[in-house]
């Protein structure tokens, strides 16, 4: 994917639930490389926005246009949910699951599972039930399971909420390394510090509306809208 070329274009996208507008209208373009942070307080519509991009949230009007062929959109994307979904299986089987779906060879699956277990630091726990892991371990497992598919695009929905500093840094390291080896990352967070550490560009959401979008240093240092200013100063809590 060439930097500068549009990856995806949203035009007047609206999501309504029970006749309430929870997102939109949103019109924006995302570029083909970098690490986009979707920033905003709780209830801003970040999750909805990510799911719309991933194509698992029904839109009420507007359009989402990916630059790649329709068929390969979902296949080349991975998504780590706000509350990670743990299959009721062992860590090993959780990691292997996406590859099994693709019908890959057992030996190749084993090799990748070992590699990724090591990357996310869960080698010791390969045979434990995934549902018994701690919150941080679950997030790391979900991330490993997302990356094992070698996605072109990786969505993350507040992967570090409720995690301690160490787990947060471990996850951030993994993300930066994936990003530098070519994975496009789009990640929701309400954590300003994390945004500063990771973002190449930022989409600022509030009440279902995109108030600002642009390179990270522009928005995080010199926001234009009053809403973004207020949020950066810590005045918008909820």
């Amino acid at each position: 994917m060439v930097a500068g070329i549009n990856l995806v274009a949203l035009r007047a996208v609206c999501v309504k639930r029970r006749s309430k507008l929870i997102l939109g209208p949103v019109s924006l373009d995302l570029k083909g490389s970098g690490l986009t942070i979707v920033l905003g307080p709780n209830g801003a519509g970040k999750t909805t926005f990510l799911k719309v991009l991933h194509g698992i949230e029904r839109i009420s009007s507007g359009s989402v246009q990916w630059s790649m062929a329709e068929r390969s959109v979902r296949r080349t994307q991975s998504y780590v949910f706000q509350r990670p979904v743990m299959l009721r299986r062992t860590v090993r089987q959780n990691l292997a699951y996406p590859m099994k779906l693709l019908g890959q060879q057992a030996s190749k699956i084993d090799e990748h599972v070992i590699y990724w277990a090591n990357q996310i630091g869960l080698t010791e726990m390969l045979n434990s039930p995934a549902t018994r892991l701690s919150g941080g371990e679950k997030q790391k497992l979900a991330l490993g399971r997302a990356l094992i598919r070698k996605p072109k695009i990786l969505f993350l929905d507040e992967p570090c909420a409720n995690l301690d500093g160490r787990s947060t840094r471990e996850i951030e390291t993994l993300l930066l390394s994936a990003n530098s080896s070519g994975t496009r990352i789009i990640m929701a967070t309400h954590d300003l510090g994390q945004s500063r550490r990771l973002a190449t560009d930022v989409v600022f959401l509030l009440n279902g509306q995109v108030h600002e979008q642009g390179p990270a240093e522009d928005i995080l240092c010199s926001p234009q809208t009053s809403e973004a200013k207020a949020f950066l100063k810590g005045e918008i809590v909820e």
Binding site: H54, I56, R74, R75, Q77, S78, Y79, F81, V85, L87, R88, R89, Y97, P98, L101
Partner: peptide, 23 residues
């Protein structure tokens, strides 16, 4: 519980049913 993940992984109906039955 599994809905989001299985949809996101682009599973077929068959794969979904087998996963649910197994787990």
């Amino acid at each position: 519980e599994y809905h989001d993940l299985l949809i996101s992984l682009n599973t077929t109906s068959r794969q979904r049913i087998l996963t649910l039955i197994w787990d």
